[in-house]
């Protein structure tokens, strides 16, 4: 991580705020990571354009200048709606700003953008060092069995580390690294090895569902790397269905932050077996830091 900062331009921790119940936790985690990575913090509020028609006239008749009149009408209705949304978003951003300033961030940047969240994030991808967002947004606030509307699409579209927040803020004390030797989980390992901030934290290195010989080989090399970077390593090899096993390990050992690779299998396999990442996102009760 440290050598990456040297060669790249300033990249930021980006926190997505939408006024849902995870927004304040998103602010807290973003602030914590912004300080840890000493990267500037940007707060983003995205203005979703509603698919619902602003007006409807079921008369089905079109006459002189109907098209011009319709454009005029739709424009004025949407202008009013968007003005309200912008105003509302500003209030949210101000509240979020106050919160992160209190947490010690000197000058967070505030941004508002139109368009779908995923599209906005893709447009900003190059500036993102770490993306922080809630597991569910305002649209699905009540619905505990679904992920947020944008989450999966955003994770798939972006190739940046993403922290998915699903509980109130608690300063990370114990970290779990779900390691299966894949490229994405290798990146997660690297992040731990390279980041100064994490050195004093114990790391639970967990491998699930691999054959004993592969598992021990994987664990040995990873443990070595982590130890040489100064981490205390608690290694564990577990059997069972990965997402369930990892989840119960999280609970048993009171893990507050899980690092894992995301969506590293082919779409076909995910389609047949279900995506392990999606299952983890649904079952985990503590934040996940996903690497692509």
């Amino acid at each position: 991580m440290s050598n990456e900062t040297e060669k790249s331009v300033i990249t930021e921790v980006l926190a997505c705020i939408d006024g849902s119940r995870y927004s304040s936790a998103v602010c807290d985690y973003a602030a914590w990571f912004s300080l840890s990575l000493s990267a500037p913090l940007t707060l983003l509020h995205n203005l979703e354009h509603s698919e619902n028609a602003a007006s409807s006239d079921l008369s089905g008749a079109i006459g002189l200048g109907s098209r011009e009149a319709l454009l005029e009408e739709l424009t004025s209705i949407e202008a009013q709606r968007n003005k309200l949304l912008i105003e509302q978003g500003k209030l949210m951003l101000d509240a979020a700003k106050a919160r992160v300033v209190a947490a010690g961030i000197a000058a967070p940047t505030l941004k508002q953008r139109h368009d779908g969240l995923t599209e906005s994030l893709i447009a900003m991808e190059n500036d993102i060092r770490l993306l922080v967002l809630g597991v569910r947004g305002e649209e699905h606030a009540q619905d505990a069995h679904h992920l947020g509307g944008h989450l999966e699409a955003s994770i798939r579209a972006l190739h940046r580390p993403i922290l998915v927040v699903n509980c109130d803020f608690k300063e990370p004390k114990k970290i779990m690294l779900a390691y299966d030797g894949s490229e994405a989980s290798g990146k997660a390992l690297e992040l731990l090895v390279n980041s100064q901030r994490f050195t004093h934290l114990p790391v639970h290195l967990v491998t699930v569902g691999e054959s004993p010989s592969t598992a021990s080989a994987l664990q040995d090399s990873a443990t070595q790397k982590l130890q040489s970077a100064g981490h205390t390593v608690i290694a564990a090899t577990l059997e069972g269905e990965p997402s369930k096993t990892l989840h119960s390990y999280q609970d048993d050992h009171d893990i507050d932050l899980t690092l894992m690779g995301a969506f590293s299998h082919t779409r076909l396999r995910e389609w047949v077996l279900g995506s392990m990442t999606v299952k983890m996102l649904l079952s985990s009760s503590r934040p996940l830091l996903l690497l692509r």
């Binding site: 698919e51 619902n52 006239d57 079921l58 079109i62 098209r67 319709l70």
Partner: peptide, 13 residues
């Protein structure tokens, strides 16, 4: 014409 009627009637998707 029909597409305009659709939008005017509230169709979007």
């Amino acid at each position: 014409g029909q597409s305009v009627i659709n939008i005017k009637s509230g169709g979007r998707g």
